[in-house]
Design a binder for these strands. Structure first.
Lengths: 136, 136
DNA sequence: TGAACTCGGAGTATTTTACTCGGAATTTGA
DNA sequence: TCAAATTCCGAGTAAAATACTCCGAGTTCA
């Protein structure tokens, strides 16, 4: 029942990018220094976020990453899905796998409900909510 | 973002025990056959559930497990906590560990909220809800 | 007394997570 | 035009968590 460190790190980095929204790009070096995240690992994370359309990168000197959408348009759900893959509380619910027990699985209905609830809740929270909570 | 197989298996086994509530105990052998769970693994799971007061065991021939409380008194939260440990979406929130970033952690407030929401939701669902959803 | 059970501790195998490494491509400034 | 600063990409490795197994001992009952 845990989000991976990738999602945790990713969210932290995105917070910084949210602060820099509409300003100069932020490099891996800066991001990893600010959040104490190992550089090469964060590099992978940012690449995945880019592949999923959450950030964009500019190459070369002075380059780095920027949010591709407004902070209020980026939900926790997108972030977690981008970095951890589909949200599936039990393997049954992972679309890339199939449930071992074809039918009459006694527990999948309840997990489906919980899973759906969780997804919706994560979808309702955005980077700007995260920012708002920061000062407190 | 996944519940371990222990919780998944545990819930399945508890469903069977719920059907047998106030009847004869059910052995590991029966439970593992019904749900196709490896016997020695299920044995461990049932032991943990017993240690957490969710089931009770009777030894010897004809023995096995029974629910210790009514199905409507056993929540998904208890089950998951018994088998997977504390519900903590990020390591920050695990009471047995401490957050690496002492203060000013930018993301822990939001995770705390999501975590709390999830816990409450799991607490609101009980074994009898799981049973009700089964037939459908 | 022996078969059908659980108990408890200590192990192992597998999978997932958390990272590292190195070389190529791109951009900018001196 | 060259060197520094950056991302890109593919392939790897290390560590940790999960998913199990094994075995000997204790209980209960017929």
């Amino acid at each position: 029942m845990r989000v991976t460190r990738k999602s945790d790190y990713g969210l932290r980095a995105l917070c910084t990018l949210a602060r820099h929204y509409n300003r100069e790009p932020v490099s891996i070096g800066q991001l990893s220094a600010e959040h104490k995240i190992p550089e090469p690992f964060l590099e992978k994370i940012m690449q995945e976020l880019r592949e999923h359309g959450l950030v964009e990168a500019t190459h070369g000197r002075g380059g780095g990453y920027l949010l591709k959408k407004r902070p209020s348009q980026i939900s926790l759900r997108e972030i977690v899905q981008a970095l951890d893959g589909p949200i599936a509380l039990v393997t049954c619910l992972d679309p890339s796998l199939k449930c071992a027990i074809e039918d009459g699985c006694p527990t999948s209905p309840i997990w489906e409900i919980v899973n759906h609830q969780l997804e919706e809740y994560l979808a309702s929270l955005t980077l700007s909510d995260v920012m708002k909570l920061q000062g407190e």
